[in-house]
Write a protein that binds this DNA or RNA. Structure first.
Length: 460
DNA sequence: GCATGATCATGC
DNA sequence: GCATGATCATGC
């Protein structure tokens, strides 16, 4: 069969794939026909079998657009060229901004053999060096051939972010080496994550080499935050935009956490007013990005610059205030619950899970007297341990089930001591949101209990 | 106008 | 003193 691309050339495959950009499969095939025919000589948009579910669009694309049959999944998609095809869905937010809808799953981990691999010679690197990304707008009402494809490009994570990808890989593998595969969490790492694999917890338990405990089967993935970053970087390149970044990690030896601690250390013990004076930023603690701005400046970025790692991993900067009694005052709020969306979501694809498996950067202030200004006590990086995620999963499932059945009155409360709770988060009590039942209910959010936040600080 | 980080007000 | 519901303030 004549291909319209050279199966041995990444560039050729990419260029062929790029005819999908700002277009859709149906349109691109028409364009291709004008240039000399279909990739396989076929002219049908109808695949040999019906594809559906996760990965369905990818399989459809391989057959209908690239003229390949999906007979094997373990081989690289374009084996001869060393290129892996990944279709990745996007969604539009209410304000029109575009976000990745999901993580990109990169292949399952074998706990038993991975402990003998080095990063350079790893299965991960050999399989995922170059990935051909086809970003499309998720739309369950459209046929695959009509899905909008705004961006197509190759991502080489080693070239772009090699130092941190390597650290992430080694962090995950080290947990297996320490006999702690069952404690791996997607929140452990910045870009490369370890997401769970398998339908249920019960059927997805695997043995690990250095512990008798079974661990949840896991796959490497690009975390959803990193997928957002990839999309943004590739889009900026396509549109010839340049963004000014300050990189914290610039050699294999640099540790994000260490550098950040060093940069913050001169400011520990100072009150916020003094810090603002030194950094020459106005003291406006009510401004929404006030603490993000302080962080940026302390880490050496100008107002118009971004800290690369914070943006690429979407590290959540949160301030915590400790009162004279040693306790923190408030619970920590998260995004409001979209009642109509949550009922269709699985826990591990939910907004709350994505937020909780981000890395957190806590800026902790305290004061010894209610009238004293807050003093910077310390900063810590944190991510939620796997066992706590399991608890929050129950809170989420409870909310998920209650929303599905139309019960908006009996969510898990702070006093239930389940790490997280649900409570109102709105402009006022008339600020409501549509539900799957077609009614309107007060806007609510998930919150992390303030007791839990205090426990984190005590143990950190 | 809306989302969200922050904080208040009430009542047990 | 704390949980819970409610609301404010600001940026985009």
């Amino acid at each position: 069969m004549p291909y319209l691309y050279d199966v041995n050339s990444k560039e050729s495959i990419r260029d062929f794939a790029r005819m999908l950009e700002d277009s859709c499969v149906a349109e691109a095939l028409e364009k291709n026909a004008m240039y000399g025919g279909m990739p396989t000589g076929e002219s049908s948009l109808v695949p040999s079998k019906e594809y559906s579910g996760k990965g369905g669009f990818g399989q459809y694309l391989e057959e209908v657009y690239f003229g390949k049959r999906n007979d094997s999944y373990s081989r690289a998609d374009f084996e001869a060229a060393g290129l892996e095809l990944k279709t990745t869905p996007l969604k539009k937010l209410g304000n029109g901004e575009v976000r990745a809808k999901e993580r990109i799953v990169l292949g399952i981990m074998d706990f038993m053999t991975i402990v003998n691999e080095s990063f350079e010679n790893s299965h991960f690197v050999s399989k995922n060096l170059d990935i051909l990304l086809v970003f499309y707008f998720h739309d369950s009402l459209k046929e695959y051939c009509n899905l909008d494809i705004p961006l197509v490009d190759i991502w080489n994570c080693i070239k772009e972010d090699g130092y941190q990808i390597r650290k992430d890989w080694e962090y995950i593998v080290n947990k297996v080496k320490e006999g702690r595969a069952h404690e791996i969490s997607e929140g452990d790492t910045l870009y490369l994550g370890a997401c769970t694999k398998g339908a249920t917890r019960e059927t997805s338990q695997r043995e690990q080499p250095f512990s008798p405990l079974l661990a949840h089967a896991r796959a490497f993935c690009y975390k959803v935050q990193y997928v957002n970053h990839i999309y943004q970087v590739l889009l900026d390149r396509k549109q010839n935009r340049t963004v000014s970044y300050v990189h914290i990690i610039n050699s294999p030896e640099t540790e994000l956490e260490q550098i950040v601690q060093n940069k913050f250390s001169p400011y520990i013990g100072m009150n916020v007013l003094m810090i603002c004076q030194l950094l020459k930023i106005p003291f406006k603690p009510k401004v929404k990005n006030f603490y993000a701005m302080i962080t940026k400046r302390i880490l050496g970025a100008e107002e118009t610059q971004q800290i690369y790692e914070f943006q690429a991993a979407d590290i959540q900067i949160k301030t915590i205030r400790i009162e004279p009694n040693g306790k923190c005052k408030e619970s920590m709020s998260f995004k409001q619950i979209r009642y109509e969306e949550i009922v269709d979501q699985e826990w591990e694809d939910s907004d709350f899970y994505m937020e909780l498996t981000s890395k957190f950067f806590f800026i902790i202030f305290k004061h010894d007297h209610p009238d004293d200004p807050y003093v910077l006590d310390r900063v810590i990086f944190w991510n939620m341990p796997e066992k706590d995620l399991e608890v929050v999963k129950r809170v989420w499932l409870d909310a998920h089930n209650k929303i599905s059945t139309g019960d908006y009155k009996h969510f898990i409360q702070s006093s239930d001591n389940q790490i997280a709770h649900v409570r109102p988060h709105a402009k006022d009590s008339s600020d409501v949101m549509r539900t799957p039942q077609g009614t309107f209910e007060k806007k609510k959010s998930f919150w992390l209990n303030r007791n839990y936040i205090m426990d984190i600080l005590l143990n950190a």
